[in-house]
């Protein structure tokens, strides 16, 4: 499991994230997985609907909203995925990877990790708050469930860091 250390709490806070190479490899696979869905929305319309929910109940206003900022939302998510992947692209130091990052990167990780969680949860069909208590029996689904829980722990760690 990753660890996160606060290096400097000053006006320009800095953090150190330490991952093992296996965890880094798992995280590196997620941006491509999500970007593939963004580029091929027909493959998983439920995930796309979850990541791009309606802004208006009124169909005409929703259409107008989509025309106005739909492509911006799409491109911003792709850019975030690229930026997230770039933060992981450094050489390992033995079995570990050490990332020295600023607050903006922690904030980036927070919402990109959340996108990954939404992707997994939607694919798992999670629709209630008690999903933790019912791990799926199917092996592939269980693997996604474990990854979802792992990302939840990572997100808690990031939240603790930004909360001081």
């Amino acid at each position: 499991m990753a660890s996160l250390h606060i290096i400097d709490r000053g006006d320009d806070p800095h953090f150190r994230i330490i991952l093992d190479v296996g965890e880094r490899a798992v995280l590196q696979g997620l941006p491509e997985r999500l970007e593939t869905l963004l580029l091929h929305p027909d493959r998983s319309p439920k995930v796309i609907d979850r990541l791009f929910p309606p802004a208006h109940h009124d169909p005409d206003r929703e259409r107008e909203h989509r025309e106005l900022i739909g492509s911006t939302l799409f491109e911003e998510r792709r850019e975030s995925l690229k930026a997230f992947a770039a933060t992981l692209a450094i050489p390992p130091d033995g079995p570990l990877v050490t990332l020295d990052v600023d607050l903006a990167t922690i904030n980036l990780w927070l919402h990109v990790v959340n996108d990954f969680r939404l992707l997994l949860a939607t694919e798992l069909g999670i629709e209630d708050n008690d999903y933790h208590e019912r791990p799926p029996e199917d092996p592939d689904a269980y693997e996604s469930f474990v990854l979802l829980e792992h990302l939840s722990s990572l997100q808690y760690m990031l939240l603790e860091a930004v909360s001081g």
Partner: peptide, 17 residues
């Protein structure tokens, strides 16, 4: 519009009325 868009980017479900 700005708030709803940012909330969506953050992964929250938000609408405006």
């Amino acid at each position: 519009e700005y708030y709803v868009t940012r909330l969506h980017i953050f992964g929250l479900q938000a609408t405006m009325e």
